[in-house]
Structure formats: C-alpha cells, structure tokens
C-alpha cells in the first residue's frame, strides 16, 4: 500500500527541471557527440584522459556555477541533508566506486542511456533504483534511523 506525500509532491517543477536536464543532454550529444553522464565526465577528468578534457571541465564548471547563477535571480531551493558525516562519507565512497564499475549514474544511464534505448542502461537503472529503494527501506523502516 503506497501513501502519496501530496504536501511535498511537485509535479510541474520536477517535470520542467527534468525537461531542462533532457535539453542539456540533447545539446551535448547533438552538438558535441558526447554523453552527459556526470560520473563518466568526472571519472575521465580524474583519470587524466586528454581527449575532450576542455569540454568535460567546462561542462562540470557549468554544473558547479548553476546555483550561483540561480542565486543571482532568486532564492536557492531548500537543500536539506538527513545524513550525518559518517553516512555521507560512506555514501560518497559507494557512489564513487559503484558508478565507475557500473559505467554510469542517474544521468549517464538513467537519462542518456534510457533515451538511446540501451539495454545496459535499463539494467543499470533498474539495479540502482532497486538498491536505492531497498537501502532507504532498511535504514528507515528496519533500523528505524
């Protein structure tokens, strides 16, 4: 039985934000022939891949500067953390190593991969969604943290 959290449901802004993400991914593939996958882009920068380094760095810079541009126009949306330092540390490590072994994250597999109808990306997306749901279930409802 699923209870919808109507108070926090934001269909229009989420749909519009998603459309912008899709637009950014489309721009990058149509004009530059590249996948807008954040973990892949950062991983290649870390590994010192020379080909396309400038483009990758500028893409990441754009994402980094987005909240500053937003802040010039209006108040930033709420950013609320529910995890302590140890949880953040472990989460970051798992996300870093997992996305590199799995060749992608929510953007590379979830947006770009599904948009190009990749079976690998569908499997990856189902896997990280399933373990994401399971992890929150264990933490909130079995451990009660």
């Amino acid at each position: 039985m699923i209870t919808i959290d109507w108070a926090n449901f934001t269909p229009w802004s989420s749909l519009a934000g998603g459309a912008l993400i899709g637009l950014a991914a489309s721009l990058l593939v149509i004009c530059n022939g590249r996948i807008a996958g954040i973990s892949g882009v950062i991983g290649s920068l870390l590994d010192g891949v020379r080909e396309g380094r400038g483009e990758r760095a500028l893409f990441v810079l754009g994402v980094l500067l987005a909240p500053l541009l937003w802040g010039l126009v209006t108040l930033l949306p709420r950013i609320e953390f529910q995890t302590g330092w140890l949880g953040l540390l472990v989460a970051g490590l798992l996300v870093g190593i997992g996305t590199r072994y799995g060749s992608g994250c929510t953007s590379g597999h979830g947006v770009c991969g599904l948009s190009r109808l990749s079976a690998r990306s569908l499997v990856a997306t189902l896997a990280f969604m399933a373990s994401g749901f399971a992890t929150v279930h264990v933490i909130r409802h079995l451990l009660g943290a």
Partner: peptide, 29 residues
C-alpha cells in the same frame, strides 16, 4: 560489473540521497 557496480551505487544513493550530478550542483552552496 555493470550490475554489481550499479547496485553499490544505489546503496550509496539510498544512504545520503545524493547522486553525482546533484553532488556537483550543490558543491558551491
């Protein structure tokens, strides 16, 4: 590798609610 890596990523995502893109997007806030 694809499946295990993605499962591990999902665990991290479920612990903190942050994936790589949003992590970068809120880094300078």
């Amino acid at each position: 590798r694809l499946i295990l890596g993605s499962l591990v990523f999902g665990i991290g995502w479920g612990i903190a609610g942050i994936c790589p893109g949003p992590g970068v997007a809120i880094l300078l806030t």
